[in-house]
Write a protein that binds this DNA or RNA. Structure first.
Length: 235
DNA sequence: GTCCAGGGCCTAC
DNA sequence: GTAGGCCATGGA
């Protein structure tokens, strides 16, 4: 039993679905469409997903701009590059040695297994694609889900640090929840909907940027029972 | 000068 | 299986 409403699995799922939809609608009403992912091609989404790992987007964007200036926003372009050159170009994104290697590893994987055809790789069913991404060194669950959702347009919910912070601080989830369990928390309750998943994740990040960064946070954040002038939801 | 950002890997227990 | 250290730049 939770909230004295219904103890059945189906009931809990319905309850959770209603909560999630209400959160989504309030965020959408507050912020509107976020137009994510900020990239022109699936390959650029993938580069961005790797370059943004534990990094402010602005820094990742600077690295992408460097690649763009050199005409390197393509698999073929990057494959002709040596490691040191790529490191120099992605330097603004931080962790640049790791990230250069991760990008190279990804490109090698597509070259070897798909003859350089990214479309063929992305065209797989969702689960096999996700699992294959997770076998590539440097691509963890969040990066994989970002690629699946925003580059392959398949409904895999993206969980990030803001999702965890916002939802745990509201006590909607247990703060010790694992990545996969938190992803399931969304995907079990919500219909599989690419556009909605894209928008939901983007809105969560927007909310996190404004109200839920590590430190200043939650005096002003939804935990107080209000959010940007809106009455917010309580668990 | 200090803290933080749209993670992931490796090692030690 | 999980806590802790490490990777690194740029902005507040």
């Amino acid at each position: 039993m939770r909230n004295g409403v219904c103890g059945s699995r189906t009931g809990l799922r319905a309850e959770r679905k209603a909560l999630l939809l209400e959160i989504y609608e309030k965020l959408f009403a507050a912020f509107g469409p976020q137009h994510w992912w900020p990239a022109r091609t699936p390959f650029e989404v993938i580069l961005g997903a790797i370059l943004a790992q534990n990094t402010a987007w602005k820094n990742a964007a600077a690295a992408i701009a460097n690649l763009d200036r050199n005409g390197l926003l393509s698999l073929e372009g990057l494959c002709g590059l040596d490691g040191a050159q790529l490191e120099a170009l992605v330097r603004p994104s931080g962790f640049y040695r790791q990230k250069a290697k991760r990008i190279m590893t990804f490109c090698d994987h597509i070259q070897k297994n798909y003859h350089g055809c990214l479309e063929q790789f992305l065209d797989q069913d969702m689960e096999p694609l996700r699992q294959e991404l997770l076998t590539i060194r440097g691509i963890g669950p969040e990066t994989a889900d970002s690629i699946v959702l925003y580059a392959a347009f398949k409904p895999s919910f993206v969980v990030d640090a803001y999702t965890w912070r916002i939802f745990s601080r509201h006590a909607w989830i247990d703060e010790t929840i694992s990545y996969d369990d938190l992803r399931e928390y969304f995907m079990e309750a919500l219909e599989l909907d690419v556009q909605m998943y894209q928008e939901f994740h983007a809105l969560v990040v927007r909310t996190g940027h404004l109200y839920c960064r590590r430190k200043p946070l939650c005096q002003m954040c939804p935990l107080g029972g209000y959010f940007d002038g809106l009455v917010f939801l309580r668990p």
